[in-house]
Design a protein around this nucleic acid. Sequence first.
RNA 1: GGCGUGGUGGCAGAGCGGUUGAAUGCACCGGUCUUGAAAACCGGCGGGCCCGUGAGGGUCUCGUGAGUUCGAAUCUCACCCACGCCGCCA
Length: 427
Amino acid sequence: MLDLRRLRQDPAAVRESLARRMDLHALEQVDRVIELDARRRTMVAEVEALQAERNLQSDEVARRKRAKESADDLLGPLKESGERVRVLEADLRDVESMLEGHLLNVPNTILPDVPEGGVAHNVVVRNWGTPREFAFTPRPHWELGQALGLFDLPRGTKLTGSGFPLFTGMGARLVRGLASFMLDLHTTEHGYTEVQPPYLVNRASLTGTGQLPKFEEDLYHASVDDLFLIPTSEVPLTNMYRDEILDGAMLPITLTAYTPCFRREAGAHGKDTRGLIRVHQFDKVELVRLVRPEESTREHALLTGHAEAVLQRLEIPYRVLALAAGDTGFASACTFDLEVWAPGVDNWLEASSASTFEDFQARRANIRFRPTPGAKPEFVHTLNASGVAFPRTIIALLENGQQADGSVVLPAALVPYVGTDRLVPLA
RNA sequence: GGCGUGGUGGCAGAGCGGUUGAAUGCACCGGUCUUGAAAACCGGCGGGCCCGUGAGGGUCUCGUGAGUUCGAAUCUCACCCACGCCGCCA
């Protein structure tokens, strides 16, 4: 949520920043917000002036009653002005709810360093690792997975539908190993606190992080209880501190969680339907940081490094993309994507997205802190990154590690967790 | 699912329908004292919004929303949440 005062003070700067998203709708929303904000302030002044007058008269009634004097002459006018206040307040509430409705649909502003343009203008800021030279044509992960008995996608489809992968045997073991490996890395070496959160969350939580109200169609909904399956553990982790005022000494708060993620992927039908590239349910280890505003740029780099460390330990070649303004997510002010190299499908696949939201989520979720004891509360800055998403990591492990004999060599870091250095085809 | 109890400021915990934004204690901030610290003492101390360059002023807020009333933390209704017991179940 944007800061109304900032919008009021310098609407041109906000509009300019939003324009970089190349989202005309956002600009229209902002204009509505500016208009409603002005209306709201006029109405507030009016209601409050009337209330102030009423309060004085009401105090006079109280004073006279205490002095055992008659106050009957004041009661009539007070009753009447009470009705007027009631009406004005109802109008005010209407305007305020419209204002909030529009404001919640305005995306975050973009940071100055973010590249201009749309998806095509994302910038590769660095590469890590060197894609292997293959003496044979590398096979796609779905062939490898089937040959190695790691997953059974047709049966997963039978259980639920397409996009709900079923891992089996060493595949299931690999998933479990990856979870332990990543959590161990982040908790022992990067200092995160491990969390095991609920997988269903309420509307307030999803509004806090920005998935609602705009992206409801992307979420699985348990309608009887009006709860939603989490699309990422960013939602429960960030919302842990919703409506709180934190002690500045607690910051930065750094959290990690291993959870499944559920995404309807509405509008993505027919895209990347093969294998594990795009699925409705996947596991992910998430990293969330709540930090002091002045730290957020540095924290963003640190966070990105934590996600990169996972891929480095797994010896997976990857590249870091600075997303262009037009490709940056609704709530994000700046995002770096980590894309792993997948030789079998001959493509780079997003395995992590590291974003800084500045105070956008903190305003929605009302997460504040006191810079020093006794000081006025300020909004924290929130950041998060996948550290990292499983399916595409598994794709990269399989496709990069595959050997001519059909086996897959695992990176050394994973051996203690999976119990073998090599996955071999079923007999 | 049934019955019961309760939701007040960072925490604990008072609160007759009218100088109560809310006693008191703790915590916290500033000060006195001290070589320093502790203790003691003095003072301050919720949050949002609006107006104001500022000092400051106004308004709202005692789970949420409606209602009664000139006036509600205090009365009524609905909802939400927490806790306890029973039932069911991992």
